[in-house]
């Protein structure tokens, strides 16, 4: 078991740094995880992270990249629902990195 230390509180993670307890997530933890991924959180990043949290809340799964891209396109418009935009924000994969920052499990089928 691994853990991260944020604001004097300890959070358990798996060996890849994904939060184990979804309900412990907060903006401060998100910022911390983003830094470990070399990402400076902007409003655009938050928009994707919040979208993922809402998606998980409704369906109890972290969507695959293809599904995330399509669903973002539907909700936020075609200029955001494409790979260039999302990989621009999360270079190592919007599924992997954005889910990690959002405190969600790694998407099913994501290696």
């Amino acid at each position: 078991m691994s853990s991260i230390e944020v604001g004097g509180k300890s959070y358990e993670t798996d060996e890849e740094g994904y939060l184990l307890n979804l309900s412990e997530w907060n903006a401060e933890v998100a910022d911390y995880i983003a830094k470990t991924e070399n990402i400076d959180m902007t409003d655009q990043h938050w928009e994707v992270v919040n979208f993922l949290r809402e998606y998980f809340e409704e369906y109890q799964i972290a969507p695959a990249v293809r599904v995330l891209t399509k669903s973002i396109g539907k909700k936020l418009g075609a200029e955001k629902g494409n790979s260039e935009y999302l990989y621009g924000l999360f270079p190592y994969g919007p599924g992997k990195q954005a889910c990690k920052i959002a405190g969600l499990p790694k998407p099913t089928g994501c290696v």
Binding site: E58, Y59, Q60, I61, P63, V67, K70, S71
Partner: peptide, 10 residues
């Protein structure tokens, strides 16, 4: 896990 069946459409 039942809410995930509703995501199958996506």
């Amino acid at each position: 896990f039942s809410p995930a069946y509703r995501a199958l459409e996506d």
